[in-house]
Design a protein around this nucleic acid. Structure first.
Lengths: 171, 171
DNA sequence: ATGGATGCAAAGCGTTTGCATACAG
DNA sequence: CTGTATGCAAACGCTTTGCATCCAT
């Protein structure tokens, strides 16, 4: 099964593929879906991992089997558009870098950020949103979304005193 | 009443002044409380407003009545120390800048961030912490703190269609 | 055809750092 | 005295931008 098939068909719980969704968005702004933009969207939606600009740059800036090389500038420009389009969003800040994740086709959730291994772990909890809706209303604040980072030590790093976490992953 | 008096005496609900607290912290690290560091702490704790590096730099980099000029480099170095010391913490990111606030002598709270005027508004809600404590426990996560930004439009910007907010404050 | 998009390299911007000098303990 | 800290300016790392060329529509 090719990447294309995966992206176009096996996407989770959404009627339109991310690429199509992006094309629509671009259309409404008199912008175009170029090959570069499509390459970037496919790369990002190939899995459901968190990512930052650097990782995408690293993957797409090299010469690729499919010939889809994209320049650093275009990647930055496209990440902004994807955020405007509501396809991705900034979820946290780890290692002084902004971390993105898909905001299309996946349910609302928040994150734990481990201070030792810097790993992001997702968790879902509906009470939080419920409380926020209420609190916002109380303050006359028209909430559009939120960003919640829970800091601490993850289960893996907390348990064993000696293990292959700690320093290695802090780089 | 001088600034000194305010900082040393009229601080809210804490036994030791921020400056003293910082001196203690520095002591445990073999570091010193210099005049520059003291100037910075006083400036920051002179009120309870949120602030970012730039604002402090702007205020302390100029020649001052009290002669307490401090260099940009020292301000950055000191902000880091103050964060380590637990006197301040990063609460949000607005306008692509990290926003700090006091983390000493003030109760836990979170923030609304208005997308129009970029204003930060504090709110307190104990349910949130309670939920987080529980959720963290469920995941074996040892929580040390959290950062919650609620995005949207504040009451002031939401109401009147024409008013002196909107573009002016977006600078 | 033609206005938007890309790639490159240069410019920006906030933050960090090397080094000589100044000073707290 | 002695090791830290400061100030300055240069170095950094990420992101943005000007411009000539390219291409989706």
């Amino acid at each position: 099964m090719s990447d294309l098939a995966f992206n176009e068909i096996a996407r989770p719980a959404v009627a339109v593929s991310p690429v199509e969704k992006f094309r629509e968005f671009l259309g409404t702004r008199g912008k175009r879906l170029t090959q570069e933009r499509e390459t970037i969207v496919r790369e990002i939606f190939a899995d459901h991992e968190h990512f930052d600009s650097d990782q995408i740059v690293a993957r797409l800036t090299q010469t690729r089997r499919d010939g889809g090389r994209v320049s650093r500038a275009t990647i930055y420009r496209t990440l902004s558009s994807l955020e405007e389009a509501g396809l991705i969003r900034k979820v946290a800040r780890a290692n002084d870098r902004e971390v993105y994740e898909h905001d299309y086709g996946y349910p609302q959730h928040d994150h734990f950020i481990c201070e030792k291994c810097n790993q992001l772990v997702e968790f879902r909890n509906d009470e939080i949103s419920a409380v926020l809706v209420r609190v916002a209303a109380d303050h006359g604040f028209r909430m559009s979304g939120h960003r919640l980072e829970v800091h601490g030590i993850c289960a893996a790093c907390a348990k064993p005193p000696t293990r292959r976490h700690h320093k290695l992953d802090m780089i």
